[in-house]
Every structure is written in structure tokens, then in C-alpha cells.
Amino acid sequence: EADPRLIESLSQMLSMGFSDEGGWLTRLLQTKNYDIGAALDTIQYSKHPPPL
């Protein structure tokens, strides 16, 4: 049985245009305790590393 928090967070992320191919988004949301903001921060950080 999927956690209702996961279903809600995942559906919101999917509606933003993200995909869960391979389950990466599910794993990220689980790691971030279903916090969409924290997940988005992680995605943003990985796409744009800080300048040295």
C-alpha cells in the first residue's frame, strides 16, 4: 500500500511536468519525507551547481 503522502506529493510533482521514470522521483520524495519544496531544491541544486 502506497503512503498517501507519497501519492499526493508525486501527483503534484507529475502535474508540474516531472516524470517518475525508473522511480527516481518516488525515491527522492521518500528521502525528503514527501516535502515537495525540499525535492525541488535538490533537483535545482543538481542542475545548477554553485559557482566556484
Rank of each mutant, 00 (worst) to 15 (best):
G37L: 09
S15A: 13
D41I: 05
P49F: 08
E21H: 07
Y34F: 12
N33Y: 06
K47G: 13
P49A: 12
Q12P: 01
Y45L: 10
S15I: 05
Q12S: 09
K32D: 04
K32G: 04
M13I: 04
G22E: 11
T42E: 13
G17P: 00
P51Q: 11
T26H: 02
L6S: 04
T42D: 15
L25R: 02
A2D: 09
H48S: 13
L14I: 09
S15F: 07
P4N: 13
E21Y: 04
Y34A: 06
I7A: 13
I43P: 04
S19R: 12
R27W: 05
D41K: 15
L10N: 02
D35C: 04
L6A: 08
I43A: 05
K47R: 13
T31C: 09
G22I: 00
L6N: 02
G23R: 06
Q30H: 05
D20E: 01
I36G: 05
D41T: 10
A38I: 01
S9I: 04
P51C: 13
G17T: 02
H48T: 14
S9P: 11
A39C: 13
R27L: 05
L29V: 03
I7R: 12
L14H: 05
F18G: 01
W24G: 09
A2G: 15
Q44K: 15
T42N: 08
L25M: 07
P51M: 12
R27N: 11
A2K: 11
I43L: 12
I43S: 04
L6E: 09
L52I: 05
E8A: 11
D20N: 11
A38K: 14
G37E: 14
P51A: 12
K32R: 07
I43K: 03
D3Q: 03
H48A: 14
W24H: 13
P4V: 06
G23M: 04
A2F: 15
Y34W: 02
S15G: 14
T26I: 04
E1R: 01
P4F: 04
L14N: 13
Q12N: 07
A2H: 04
Y45I: 15
T31R: 13
P50Y: 09
T26G: 05
Y45Q: 15
G23Y: 00
L6R: 05
E21P: 00
E1N: 03
W24E: 14
R27D: 09
S19I: 11
D3N: 07
S19N: 10
P49K: 14
P51R: 13
E1P: 07
S9K: 05
P49G: 13
L10M: 10
K32T: 11
L25G: 01
Q12G: 04
S19T: 15
E8G: 06
G22Q: 07
L29I: 05
G37A: 12
S46Y: 14
P51K: 10
S11W: 06
W24L: 09
I7Y: 09
S15R: 12
Q30I: 11
N33W: 01
L6V: 06
T26C: 03
D35E: 08
G17F: 01
T26R: 07
L52E: 15
L29G: 02
S15D: 14
D35V: 03
Q30Y: 06
I7W: 11
G37Q: 10
S9C: 13
P50A: 13
P4M: 09
E21K: 04
H48P: 14
E21D: 08
H48K: 15
Q44P: 14
Q44R: 14
G37M: 09
S9F: 05
D35G: 01
L29H: 07
G23S: 04
Y45E: 15
E21Q: 08
E1I: 07
S46N: 12
N33C: 05
P50E: 14
A38T: 06
S46E: 14
L25C: 07
L14G: 08
N33D: 10
E21R: 07
T42C: 12
G17Q: 02
M16I: 06
D35W: 00
S9Q: 05
D20Q: 00
E8Q: 11
Q12D: 07
K32L: 10
I36C: 10
G22M: 01
L6Q: 07
E8L: 09
K47L: 09
I7G: 10
I36V: 15
Q30N: 07
H48D: 13
L25Y: 06
Y45N: 15
Y34T: 03
S11R: 15
K47C: 08
E8V: 09
I7F: 12
L29C: 01
Q44Y: 12
A38R: 11
S15C: 08
W24M: 10
D35R: 03
T31S: 15
K32F: 04
Q12L: 10
G37F: 13
F18S: 02
R27M: 04
L28K: 01
E8Y: 11
M16D: 06
Y45P: 09
A2C: 07
F18T: 02
E8W: 07
N33L: 03
K32S: 11
D41A: 11
T31F: 07
S19A: 09
E21G: 04
L10I: 06
L52A: 15
R27T: 10
R5H: 05
W24D: 11
L28N: 05
G37C: 11
L14Y: 06
G17R: 00
L52M: 12
I36N: 03
D20P: 00
L40R: 07
M13D: 01
D35I: 00
F18V: 05
M16F: 12
A38W: 04
D3E: 06
I36L: 10
L14V: 12
W24P: 04
D20S: 01
E21L: 02
E8N: 14
M13W: 00
S15Y: 09
H48C: 12
D20C: 01
D3W: 00
L52K: 15
T31L: 11
I43R: 02
A38E: 11
P4G: 05
Q44T: 14
M16G: 03
D35T: 00
P4W: 06
G23T: 03
L52T: 15
L10Y: 08
S9H: 05
G17Y: 01
L52C: 15
E8S: 13
L25P: 02
P4T: 09
Q44M: 09
M13L: 10
L25Q: 02
Y34V: 04
G23W: 00
F18H: 05
S15L: 09
S11C: 07
D41Y: 06
A38G: 08
Q30W: 03
I36S: 07
G23P: 01
S46F: 05
Y34Q: 04
D41G: 07
L29P: 03
R5Q: 10
G23K: 08
D3M: 03
G37T: 11
A39H: 00
R27K: 15
D35Y: 00
H48Y: 14
R5P: 05
Q12W: 05
G17E: 00
G22S: 11
W24C: 12
S11H: 06
M16E: 06
T26N: 00
W24Y: 07
G37Y: 10
I43M: 12
S11N: 09
K47H: 11
Q44L: 10
S46K: 12
T42W: 11
Q30T: 15
Y34P: 03
L40Q: 05
I43F: 06
I43E: 07
H48N: 13
K47W: 04
E1D: 03
L28A: 04
K32H: 10
D20Y: 00
P50S: 11
P49S: 12
L10K: 08
G37D: 13
D41L: 07
G22A: 05
T26M: 02
Q12C: 09
L10V: 06
M16K: 08
